[in-house]
Structure formats: C-alpha cells, structure tokens
Nucleic acid binder design. Structure first.
Lengths: 350, 350
DNA sequence: GAATTTTTGATGTACGTAAATCAGAAATTA
DNA sequence: TAATTTCTGATTTACGTACATCAAAAATTC
C-alpha cells in the first residue's frame, strides 16, 4: 500500500496536524521538527494523492487563454480546441476563459495580460508576440506566482514556465530539406511567404529554412520575404505579384497563415511551383489533395491546448511534467497520409 | 456548483442509498424508481466525480502488457516506455506487468493471453500477431468484460476495444510518396525489407507503399519482398545479397525492424541507394545523421503506451475517450528535424 | 521562576463517492 | 387479511487529504 499522511506521522513520531503543517507549508513548526517530518517523508517515499487533495480542497483551476483575433483558420481551429477543452472542464476541474486580441499587436497583448493578471487565475496560456513589454508582463505574472505557458509562438527574454509548441527552427529546416529534394534539378528561385517577423515562430522557421537551403542546396536563390500579415487578401496579392515578377519561381514556402490567398493565387498561376505550407486547415487540406500544395507541416492544435492545460495545472500544484509527453511534434502531411477528416476540424467557412 | 449524488436524491425524491443502487447497478430497485432516478440524473446533468469515486473505491487498475521478446530496438524501447509508466503507477493508480513472448509466434501469444486472462486484470494491451487463434482469445477476454487494446500491430477479426498504433497503410503510402519524389529521375528498382507478413502492420505498410508507387510512379519496379524476421543478422544477409544481385537498386524501403543489419550492409555497399526506414532508434538516428538513411517514419512508443493506458482505464470504467487525443501520428524524421536525444532513448547497446 | 510566546497534539468536519447494515415500507403471494 | 418477499430509507464508515479549533506542552522571554 502506498504510504499516507498517517504513515508519515507514525514514522516521524509526530501528530497528523504537524505533518499537515509541514506538507502545506503552514507556520508554527520548529525547524528540527520540520526536518524530522521531511526526513520521514523521504524515507517512506510518501507521494501526495493529488486527487484526494483536490477533492478536499474542492480545487478548480481558473485558466486564461489569450490568442490573436482575426480571420486565421489555424487560430480559429486553436480556439475550437480550447472550447472543446471547456466542454471537458467538469472532468478536469478547470474553468477556462478565452481572450482574443488583435494579431501582431504587442500593446494590446500586454493589456490583455495585465487584465488577466488582475483576475489572479491559476495559470495563463498565451500566443506570444515577441516583444520586451510582453516579456515584462509575463515576468510580473511569474513573480506573482502565476504560471505562464506560451502557446504556438514563444517569447524571448521571459521566464515563462513552458512553451507548448513545435521547434520552429526544426520545422523550417525540414521545409528546406523537403523543398530542396522535391525540386531536385529544377531551376528557379524560391519565394517565402510569412505573416510577420514580429512573432518568433515565423522568424525561426525562416531561419531554419534558409540555413538548410544555403548549406545543402547552394545555388538555390531565396527571394526577399513577402510579409502577408496572415491575411488571405494580402497574401494573394503578394504571391500573385511575385509570380508575375519572377515567372520562373520553382518553389514557395508559406511559413505563416493566409494560405487561402496563396491557394487562390496558385490556381490561376500559369506555372506550377512546388509548394510547402504550414498548418493543416480545410483549405490546405483540399489544396494538398488537389496537388496544389506538395507538403504541409502541421502542429496539432488539440495537442497544444491539452498540453498547455496539463502543464499549467502541474505548475500550479508545483508538480513535475512528463517532458516527452509535452513535446509537440511536427507533423508532415503529404496527400497520402492525411488524417481522416473529423468533426473537430474547423468548419469550412472559417 | 457541479451536482452531486445528494442533488440527484433530492431531485428524484429518493434516498441516497437508492441513487447509489442505480448508479452502481446494484440490485433491489424497482424499474419505475430506477427510471425516476435516471431521469433526474439526466435532468440535472450529473457527472460522476471519477477522482472521488476512485478514492472511495481505493481503485487500482491491474494492467498487462504483452509484447514480443528478442533483440528488437523498437520493442525494447517500447518496453522501456512501459517501465517508465510503471514508475508513474503510484500517481496513476495502475499496477502494470509486462509479459514477453517469442516474436511472430501466434500459439505463444495465445498462451500468454490465456494466462493473463486467468489473472483477471482491468485491461490488457498486446502487440498482436494477426491470427484467428489470437483473435479468438481476445474475443473471449472481451466477452468476459476485460478490455483489450492492440498495440503497434492490429488484430483482424477481433472486437478489441482500441488500436494504439499508427495507420500503417498511410505510413506505407507516405514512404512510397517520399521514395518516388526523392528518387526523381534516378533509374533502378526498389527493394523492400520486411519483418514478417504474419503481422498486420508490415502487411499494411507494404500494401500502401506498393499502391502509391504503382499509381503515381509507374515504371518503378519493386523487387520481391525480403523477409528478415526483424533480425539484424538475417536482414544484413538479405540486403547484401539483394545489392549484389541487383547493383542498380535505387531505393530501399525497410518497413520492419532489424535496421542495424540493413545499416551494416549499406556501409559496405558500393552504391548509395535512397533509404527509407521505420522507427527512430539509436541506430536509425545515427544512420540518418550520417546520411545513410534519407528518412525515418516513426511511431512514438511513449505516446502509444500512455494512450493504451488511458484507453484501458477509460474502458474499464465505461468512460468515453477523446478520439483525437488517442490518434497516434506518423512522425517523419529527416536529419533536420531529429528530436533532441533524451535519457528516455533506448540505450546504445540494445 | 513566573509569565509569555511558540510549538505540538487531539479532534472534528469537509470534499464526493462507495459500500455496508438494518429497519421499515411497499408490493407480492398465499 | 396475513405472511412473505421485495424495495427503499436512514445511517454509518471509509478513501486520503485539507483545514480549523482548542487544549496542552514546550520553549522563550523577562
């Protein structure tokens, strides 16, 4: 049988009340007694029964998710996953609220963080805009004992507890490797469509992509980055322009959102470049099936949300997390390994 | 506040004892009363607090994992993940035992299943050999109320509760697509190294690989399958022989284990075929880094084990599972997106 | 050494559910 | 209707922890 608080009391030769004081960091215990109890805990290998503790505390975890607003299929899919988690909140003792802020807007994000801080939740998950002010807000939260997890896009210079997202440099490198191999001997430059260099995930993807192409496929030119701000209309205009200016474009790497616009532009393009994009949405899925896109690198939003919740709860309780379980993988989808469409998939009209 | 059993009792106008009888399917309740209680449960939206219930029951879940013995890096990695889960059993209320049986041996597997049946565990996870006798044993377990999850390799003609593994047909298709694209215009046939056609995962991978190569890359010949029984020595001999008989081999698809032998053969081969293999082990990882292997399709053994445990526990309690969470993904590793090596990785000497 | 403060023990209640017992009520059978 | 069987209610204990209260013991201060 697993040892209980009673066993600690017996082993340490103290009362249950004293054990409780030690375990829950309550005052009124002499250092010698505290050490005696701690040694007994160590000795008998006591592990707190979190389920029982949560029951006794009637613990619930109020969590806040902050993510960009706007017409972005991936982000709306992410939001849908958060809503799915809300459905499960009765089981998971969570109480989740969603806050949306304008995309790529550091001051707005900072304001949202401050507002969330005031509520004093058990934890905050945030799709970060990489800026010092945002990092400062996050650090204040941490100093105040509120765990923070960055979601999808990480935050430099902050002591956030965890990043629930993929290794974006590796994703970019993978895209570079696939692009280089898929193109083979085909001549022509490669275009890159990004959302904004203000978010770290986009910067890292670009960096990885560039590194591999430069190192392993020299002679392949990369055109100046097109910044489409994850907006389909802007993306379409930029891609159309690039394809007109450089009719010999051999490949396009779309490392952000706004793929709907990219796809529209591709449909009317006279040439057929090799296209690698990010995030599996209804649009990229169809384009993959129609061979307009050759490969899609994906991060599973559901996994990211569930991971963020697990980590926030664990951090709130001061518990360890299973590192391997929380590593978010980069999925590579070709048209041959598309997962079955599910009800969970964001709606077609998004 | 979430409704409790007391609320049901009040709402149905019955006593707590009757609610308990209904909830836990105990006898001694008239049909009319039972229906009254069930309607009240429905009406107030009661959800059983599993944590509290498990606490009251002092519930533990005895689980049995059955997997092939032998010198197979992937299977030993799987076993390591099961041992990691055993480490967590105090937290997860599980009590896991591991049984190993000779590989590709249906009678031995059946015997192991019958033995596990006798213990009457809360659930069984099994790496299946695809045979009618094994399916019959599994069906008997199910009829007896013991949930069964197939792990890594599925079982035809059984009513196992769940399959914790990847879509192997899709994996084979993906391999075919990558092979076709990576080879480009390079001439020469493709060799396939498998473990055994007795396991469904290998059959499915081959089928998917063939389908894509035939459909999308016609003109590419596939040599007769080499069956290496997941044994490094045998694999090496077979690959060496094939490379000698067909010096023009352009690609090799290794869809089973025994990759150590394949790699040894590759090192001394005068030609450099494009190689796609399965499962990231210390050996395939190094071969990938050394560019002896071009791509590795991987299933995360840790995810599979954790998923199997979650599903078995849920089934034992008659609860629903989050489908999306339990879908095991096919990881595609190129040398550019290798995950960091971790302590969890199977030891080098395996 | 008395008065004070700090530390410890003993005890009870609570969380939400499970499970058991026993008495009493209702339904069924004779 | 009486005797029997079947249901139902009331109550208690338990799971492992949290948390509060009050008394008693020990340590500290003056």
């Amino acid at each position: 049988m697993r040892p209980t608080v009673h066993d600690i009391a017996a082993a340490a030769g103290v009362s249950l009340a004293t054990v409780d004081r030690v375990l829950n960091l309550r005052p009124g215990v002499r250092t010698v007694t505290r050490e005696k109890v701690e040694k007994a805990i160590e000795r008998i290998g006591y592990i707190r029964d979190v389920a029982a503790a949560n029951l006794a505390k009637s613990r619930i975890y109020p969590l806040v998710f902050i993510l960009p607003a706007g017409d972005n299929s991936f982000m709306r899919g992410l939001e849908a996953e958060i809503r799915a988690a809300i459905e499960r909140s009765a089981f998971e003792r969570t109480q989740i609220s969603i806050v949306t802020v304008p995309a790529f807007d550091a001051p707005a994000l900072q304001a949202a963080l401050e507002e969330a801080h005031a509520i004093r939740p058990a934890g905050i998950a945030v799709v970060a805009v990489d800026s010092p002010e945002v990092a400062a807000s996050v650090n204040r939260l941490r100093d105040d004992g509120i765990p923070v997890v960055t979601l999808v896009s990480d935050l430099s210079g902050s002591n956030r507890d965890h990043f629930a997202g993929v290794d974006n440099t590796a994703a970019g490198r993978t895209a570079g490797n696939l692009m280089g191999r898929f193109l083979g001997e085909r001549p022509g430059p490669v275009a890159v469509l990004a959302g904004s260099m203000l978010v770290r995930d986009h910067r890292e993807r670009l960096e990885g992509f560039r590194a591999v192409l430069d190192a392993e496929f020299p002679g392949r030119t990369i055109l100046p980055v097109l910044e489409g701000h994850d907006d389909p209309t802007e993306a379409e205009r930029l891609v159309r322009g690039a394809l007109e200016t450089h009719p010999d474009i051999a490949g396009i790497y779309s490392l952000g959102a706004g793929n709907r616009g990219l796809i529209t532009a591709l449909k009317t393009s006279p040439s057929k470049p090799c296209v690698i994009a990010h995030e599996l949405t209804p649009h990229t899925r169809r384009a993959l099936q129609d061979s307009l896109i050759d490969a899609v690198l994906n991060q599973d939003a559901g996994h990211e949300v569930r991971s963020a919740i697990r980590v926030l709860k664990a951090k709130a309780d001061g518990l360890a997390v299973i590192g391997a379980q929380e590593r978010i993988r980069i999925d590579i989808f070709l048209k041959d390994n598309l997962p079955f469409d599910e009800a969970r998939t964001p709606r077609e009209d998004l």
